[in-house]
Computed example of a mutant assay.
Amino acid sequence: MVNFNGTLHESSSNLLSLENRGYAYGDALFETIKVVHGKILFWEDHYFRLMASMRILRMEIPMDFTMEFIEGEILKTVEANQLMKATARVRMNVHRVEGGKYTPTSNDINYNIIAERLESDFYALNTGPYTIELFKDFYVAPGLLSTLKTTGKNINILGSIFAKENNFENCLLLNTEKTVVEALNGNLFLVKDRVIKTPPLSEGCLKGIMRKQIIELVEKLEGYIFEEAPISPFELQKADELFITNCIVGIQPVTNYRKKEFTTEVSKLLIERLNMKIRLS
């Protein structure tokens, strides 16, 4: 079941036209959300990111787009797909209504919500082989727009194809200054000599919801120092540990980058703290 502007439909067929601005111009945003047994994880952070992103893109926010209203629509969709007693991956798409070319005729929006089942209720650490490489065919432009979760993800798509063709589990993206920004599907953290570092948003990385949770946990870790600072490609092979974060997987340790093998000590510690935080919230 698909939720389109508050109405449930059996499928997404015939709901979007060829003139849809998300399709025609990438004039759309999305949020990927994990819902565990009817509980939306980090919902307040998702909501405020969506509202801020809509304002930046000059979309008109409907009067009824309150936190409670959208939460209700998400849970209605989860229930319609019989996932209230399971764990679901929910995607909410928001796009400007049809009309115009580059210049829209209206800033009003439509939205749709879809849900699919996930296997794991809480976050589990994947300790299997996870090899990454740099993707250097195209570069991320630093700036505010790069931090938004928009539907224009050509670099991520091409990087994913490159990773698949070369048997890598993931790739890291570089910005135009040739510093490391993030992974294809999440934010990057680097551990070296008790310092845990992640690129600042000014580098062009996504304003990730899980990134925010991990930063809060890292800042409370005794014996570690947290830094938001640019990461050069040369630092990767000198690191003790690398891990990637997003709201669906939680924390994904990197095991190999070129000839370097990494530990997973901090990843294990943080995923325990993350699950504890969720249980207590």
Rank of each mutant, 00 (worst) to 15 (best):
Y130R: 14
Y130S: 08
Y130D: 12
I132M: 10
I132R: 09
E133Q: 14
E133H: 13
E133V: 06
L134H: 08
L134A: 04
L134S: 04
F135Q: 09
K136H: 11
K136W: 02
K136G: 09
D137T: 12
A141P: 01
P142L: 04
G143R: 02
L145K: 08
L145C: 04
L145V: 04
L145I: 11
S146H: 05
S146A: 15
T147H: 06
L148K: 12
K149N: 09
T150N: 05
T150K: 10
T151I: 06
K153P: 00
N154P: 00
N154Q: 10
N154G: 00
N154V: 05
I155A: 06
I155Y: 02
I155H: 04
I155K: 03
N156S: 10
I157V: 15
I157R: 11
I157M: 11
I157K: 10
I157Y: 12
G159E: 04
G159P: 01
G159H: 00
S160R: 11
S160F: 00
S160A: 13
I161A: 03
I161W: 01
F162H: 08
K164N: 08
K164W: 00
K164Q: 13
E165H: 11
E165M: 08
E165V: 10
N166R: 12
N167S: 13
N167H: 11
F168I: 04
F168A: 03
F168N: 03
E169Q: 15
N170D: 15
N170G: 02
C171K: 10
C171W: 07
C171M: 15
L172A: 12
L172K: 02
L173C: 09
L174H: 08
L174Y: 08
N175E: 09
T176F: 01
E177W: 01
K178P: 00
T179D: 07
T179I: 10
V180R: 03
V180Y: 03
V180C: 03
V181F: 00
V181S: 10
E182M: 07
E182H: 02
E182S: 13
A183R: 01
L184F: 02
L184S: 13
N185M: 12
N185G: 12
G186Q: 04
N187F: 01
N187P: 12
N187V: 10
N187C: 07
L188S: 02
L190A: 10
L190I: 14
V191F: 10
K192C: 08
K192Y: 11
K192N: 12
K192H: 12
K192L: 14
D193M: 00
D193A: 10
D193K: 11
R194A: 13
R194L: 13
V195A: 05
V195L: 07
I196P: 01
I196A: 01
K197W: 01
S202A: 15
S202L: 14
E203T: 14
C205G: 05
C205V: 11
L206P: 07
K207W: 08
K207I: 09
K207P: 08
I209K: 07
I209R: 07
M210K: 07
K212V: 13
K212M: 13
K212T: 15
